[in-house]
Design a binder for these strands. Structure first.
Lengths: 343, 343
DNA sequence: TTGTAGGCGTTATCAC
DNA sequence: GTGATAACGCCTACAA
């Protein structure tokens, strides 16, 4: 057991009988030093258990080799998965992930972003386009490259990888309308500070209107992203004056809640009620062969965000916005019930 | 829009008309400078959009205000939740989380830990006690305080917050044995490099043996942590020569898979088959009112790990190991079926 | 209470 | 190829 307080590069250099700068080069740029000196330095580093001092390196090189990511919460499988993918791809490129979350609280998000900027991240990954002006100002002024994810911001000036939540929702709603449903309801996550939820609702509204269905205010329920909350909202919908024949869900967590409540109430899906999900998390697909859902390549978003950012940091140029493919997966016909269910 | 490359502390000091060190103190230790100078410095910092340079600060102060965490994967609700809680508690204390994952690959874990150590984390959080000697050596030599989570390491020398997976599994198995089950099977995650999975199987084995049940080798199936894999394993169990009357699951993901497969095959739970889970994730509880499960306070583990680490970094002393409360939640009787099911 | 000066461990820019 | 040497931005005794 060594007692000394972690070897420095100067220790390695001395042990290898070379100068500080040679040691530095040998480790950083192996091909520029002679093979035997490189070997000597590496051997010394190995022997001393040398671990480079990131802060010093960052200070001198002006790069920290860390990327910051801010997600609403990890307690949602879609962000857990995309973050996991982000982490992997980043690690493969030699970057370490600095993670923050804000629970959909804008002021928390600002604090988190500030913390990441202060830690000197080389790049930043955010979710969605909804961020306070302060957040944008901070990032832009700091000059740190960043990627928005989960939404694409076609008109906006920012780099983004994701998809149009509005168009995806349109696709979902068109499908349901074409299947003949007249009374459609939607369960959405809270829309405040959440452009994805808002766009999904907007898309559904738009497509329904175009198809001649008007969603009454009571047909769109905003709820927390939890199974329990979705069940509660479902009870509300199923006991309304006008029971819908189709429920569109802002994401699969909500869809699972709807399905569970239907099972509990003996409502047959999709025979009596059609349920359509969004995001396509594994669990929902497994538990509901009947669930038609809009599939989103969750992990791909994280991976591409990492790859794009790394590319940009290496001076390569990437397309401003990049769309990942989403598609409706119809696992079973969701035709409207021939008879209106008795209430 | 400012063009300058981010204000430094010296800029703030000049703008405020004080020296560098006064500016530093005003920001770091507000109570030690005169109120008006503090105000002047803060105003200047605000005006210039000053963000401290973490690397420089870390280099000079020898603290980075970052904590590293390494999880097997975020793609498992239990780790997503505990990591989320960890992040929150850390942020509350002014620390930022540096995250790594290794997908149950020991060499990846070593690389990740090395990266975190190199980034100068002030503390480290690991999952479980299974880590390569190199990992332990690296951390110990670096002198970085660390917490093991999800397991407690009563005999070991390390700080840990979690619970005895073995005893928890014993509790589960005892319950099932007392309910009268004779033929018990278990689904486990892969046990290599995973002390939690191993301990859970060991606990079940131990309790079953004590109760006079011997689990044949074929009754314990190691499988990936996915619903699909669990379903496949369930098919195997249900078509075996000796069909079990109870299936114990190494965690709730597996339990969900079992339940879904049972539903698909028309096997009634718990009437024909008793299923017992572990970890108690929200989804499992919601989808299966019949699921008896061992509840683990997932978020609490993350939170306590953060709090303990922060306390230690502030020089407070904490108990070497800390147990979080786990308990069996019996949602519905899992009495053994009176008649052996026909195969 | 405030200012001065010496690092913190690397990288990068020069000569050699 | 290799070796001095000056940054990098901040913290912290120490002195005033």
């Amino acid at each position: 057991m060594q007692r000394k307080a972690t070897a420095r590069l100067s220790d390695v250099a001395r042990a290898a009988g070379v100068s500080l700068s040679t040691a530095s080069r040998a480790l950083a740029d192996p091909q520029v030093v002679r093979e035997d000196t490189r070997a000597a330095v590496c051997a010394a580093a190995e022997r001393l258990g040398y671990v480079p001092h990131g802060a010093a390196r960052a200070l001198a090189s002006r790069r920290s080799m860390t990327i910051g990511a801010v997600v609403p919460t990890l307690d949602n499988p879609i962000f857990a998965r995309s973050t996991q993918a982000l982490q992997r791809s980043l690690a493969d490129a030699g970057y370490t992930l600095l993670l923050g979350s804000h629970d959909y609280n804008p002021s928390t998000e600002l604090a988190v972003v500030r913390a990441l900027v202060a830690r000197g991240v080389d790049g930043l990954v955010l979710v969605g386009t909804d961020h306070s002006p302060e957040v944008y100002a901070l990032i832009v002024q700091s000059g740190i490259p960043f990627e928005l994810t989960w939404s694409i911001d076609a008109t906006g000036p920012h780099y983004a990888v994701g998809f149009s939540n509005r168009l995806a929702a349109v696709q979902v709603a068109q499908y349901v309308c074409q299947a003949g449903h007249q009374h459609i309801a939607m369960l959405s996550g809270f829309m405040a500070h959440n452009d994805r939820a808002r766009d999904r609702v907007a898309g559904v509204r738009e497509a329904c209107a175009a198809a001649g269905r008007v969603l009454p205010g009571s047909a769109i329920i905003e709820t927390a992203f939890s199974i329990a909350a979705a069940r509660s909202a479902t009870r509300q919908l199923l006991s309304a004056a006008q029971v819908p024949s189709a429920i569109l869900c802002g994401n699969d967590i909500l869809a699972i809640g709807v399905l569970l409540e239907c099972a509990a109430q003996g409502v047959s899906v999709p025979k009596q009620l059609s349920v359509v999900g969004f995001d396509d998390i594994e669990m929902a697909a497994e538990m509901a062969p009947a669930l038609t859902t809009l599939h989103v390549p969750t992990a791909q978003i994280g991976q591409r965000a990492a790859e794009r950012l790394v590319a940009r940091l290496q001076g390569e140029s990437v397309a401003r916005t990049e769309a990942v493919p989403v598609r409706l997966i119809v696992r079973e016909s969701s035709a409207a019930p021939a008879v209106v269910r008795a209430k």
